[in-house]
Design a protein around this nucleic acid. Structure first.
Lengths: 362, 362
DNA sequence: CGTGCACTTGACTACGTATGCACGCTCCGT
DNA sequence: ACGGAGCGTGCATACGTAGTCAAGTGCACG
């Protein structure tokens, strides 16, 4: 069956034999141990080079009990949001001489049997999913979580098994872990305040999932700013949905069917806003002529000329770097306290075409 | 320094002790070896569960000489193209019980010393870059290459070290390796033919890098169709660039400055086309009123209402699945021949708003 | 009642690398 | 000339798992 007969690879023993030294010496040379004679080092290096020797990471990991690899957990790779997070994570990890593994958390549909006892729920949480296995089987030194829902069990399990991890973008309350997030509530307030300042009164919103910190905090910020302005946010012009193009598209179609129509729609993020933008195109409406739109995140896409999307910038690169640093400090035990270190970044409003004063006399 | 004192994890020996059996038996139970008594199995499983035992992938890999992990090599994670490739790759690998690692190939700028001797070039090729190290250090069983340029040394090095790999989307001539690609030349011909059929005569093009099979083959297809129609493709309305938004944007600005302007511009892929689309918006031109646009790939984005991009569909999911299957067959030695197996998929023209007949009397 | 087979289990070793320990050698000081 | 320090190197072992070999038990059959 497995007729592979993989060509057995060259090991440090082979190099040792070729150089006429012991395997220990080979290891020392390659680990840059300075207690080895220059002439020996030379011989070993040329033997290694001649044999095309590449040290086995597996053998090394087994004895060092470290893989210098961190896992990044995301939900949906198809979502345009993640690449912008993944790239800086990857880069910063590289700088710190860590490798990166990308893992997807398949969100299981909440089945019909909603009321299983807490004992049962606990048991299910401990059940080893493929993802959890991957995180706990020591092929990874730490984890960056970007997708956690507030009720997620994953962070709790990781904490219990004392696997180092850090929250990025979102976090889960009641779990003591480092995190790097933007001040979502403030950002949403800024955007809402600007809409109010421009004279918008009939404000609509497409919020994110209430069981994510991001969705909830941005909603809080919008509602606070609306209330502070003495305005209201009627349920008829509010929708909740996932952070996806499709969710934004569909919600926007519904909102545009309301009478009176909102003159501005605040969206939970840029992807949703772009879904909404396309919905207006499908409906023959114009932005900002018929309705203004505001996003959140400031993805490169928001700046595209066809959108000109007003949005709230969050420093994703800085956040990703911070997350990696926090994590690696934990991994290498360089941090004294067990307390969670929460880094909160400043949002910044980026004004573009998609937000304008409401049409007069509409 | 490293005061981590990582809590030493539970091993199969711990489980063995708890269950009152030998480590071998624990291993057998977990490997589902049926030569173990039901009662023993029961005891071992409950001990393992009580101790929250998770087998060490590192230990396992060392002895099995296999990691069940395949690497995906891409250039630019920020490019919207890759997620659509990565997701199905990841999924198919999961189905086959393989894990996936995402690696980026940093394309080194071609320095000024262009003419180093072939011996020198060879030496540099053998130099172990971080990426190459990662691919050869046996932390990975095989590689999916999506980014190779025609002169790339990576595939050749992999072949020489007999590391299984497969080309996806692009390929490199002269390297005998399995590949899964669309018929790029045919696809480009289809799109060009349609433009001609609609009456376009002044055709412009933004081609991809000539040192990629994708860029070159799509260019070939366009040129063949133009010639077959008895038309010409003047250099003034042809640009070459990378497969990026920015390249498409800039090239389009240049093409639109030509007189007479082309009435249609064929783009090397959808990202480039969308860059071009945005350039027209910046210039105050309309698509397809002032100029028609055609892409390639049929990313979900092409179907967005604001674009309505006519493009050539390639079955990326099927291609990704095929690539994974080809690769795993190689890894597991299930394929007799050494000959390259090339799977060529059918392109399909998807007509949307962005391609229309040229304005009359323009 | 003896032989042999089926079934179950444990002792042991290999995988490739890193490293503690000990040994031998050189060189210097007295 | 002798002792000790210090350097360079090899031996042996550990890491956690899989699998080989052999041994033990019990049962059926002759």
């Amino acid at each position: 069956m497995d007729g592979a007969s993989r060509p057995e690879s060259v090991t440090s023993h082979d190099v040792a034999r070729a150089a006429g030294v012991s395997q220990s010496t080979v290891s020392r040379v390659l680990r840059n141990d300075r207690r080895v004679a220059a002439s020996t080092r030379e011989r070993v290096l040329s033997a290694a080079s001649a044999l095309h020797y590449v040290p086995s990471e597996v053998g090394r990991s087994l004895v060092t009990r470290s893989t210098r690899t961190i896992a990044i957990v995301v939900t949906d790779l198809g979502n345009a949001f993640y690449p912008h997070l993944i790239a800086p994570l990857h880069d910063e990890a590289s700088v710190q001489n860590y490798r990166t593994v990308l893992l997807t958390e398949t969100v299981e549909p909440l089945g019909g049997d909603g009321d299983l006892g807490s004992a049962e729920a606990e048991a299910r949480a401990e059940e080893i999913s493929p993802l959890l296995d991957r995180l706990l089987n020591r092929s990874t030194d730490g984890v960056v979580l970007t997708t956690s829902r507030l009720d997620g069990t994953l962070p709790r399990v990781l904490a219990r098994r004392s696997m180092p991890f850090v929250f990025l973008t979102r976090f889960v309350e009641g779990v003591a872990a480092d995190s790097a997030v933007v001040d979502n509530s403030l950002g949403a307030s800024l955007a809402t305040g600007e809409a109010v300042r421009l004279g918008h009164v009939r404000i609509g919103a497409i919020f994110g999932p209430p069981d994510t910190s991001t969705g909830r905090d941005r909603e809080r910020g919008v509602r606070a700013a609306v209330t502070a302005a003495g305005l209201e946010l009627p349920d008829a012009v509010v929708r909740h949905g996932n952070f996806t193009f499709e969710a934004g598209h569909q919600a926007m179609v519904e909102l545009m069917a309301q009478r009176p129509r909102p003159t501005v729609v605040l969206c939970s993020n840029d992807i949703v806003a772009i879904g909404a933008f396309n919905a207006t195109a499908a409906l023959g409406l114009s932005v900002p002529g018929d309705v203004s739109l505001v996003g959140f995140d400031d993805l490169p896409m928001a700046a595209w000329e066809v959108f000109g999307l007003t949005t709230v910038h969050q420093p994703m690169e800085a956040m990703a770097r911070a997350a990696v640093e926090l994590l690696i400090e934990r991994i290498e035990g360089r941090v004294d306290s067990d307390a969670a270190r929460q880094m909160v970044f400043e949002p910044r409003l980026v004004v573009r075409r998609s937000l304008a004063p409401p049409a007069t006399g509409a």
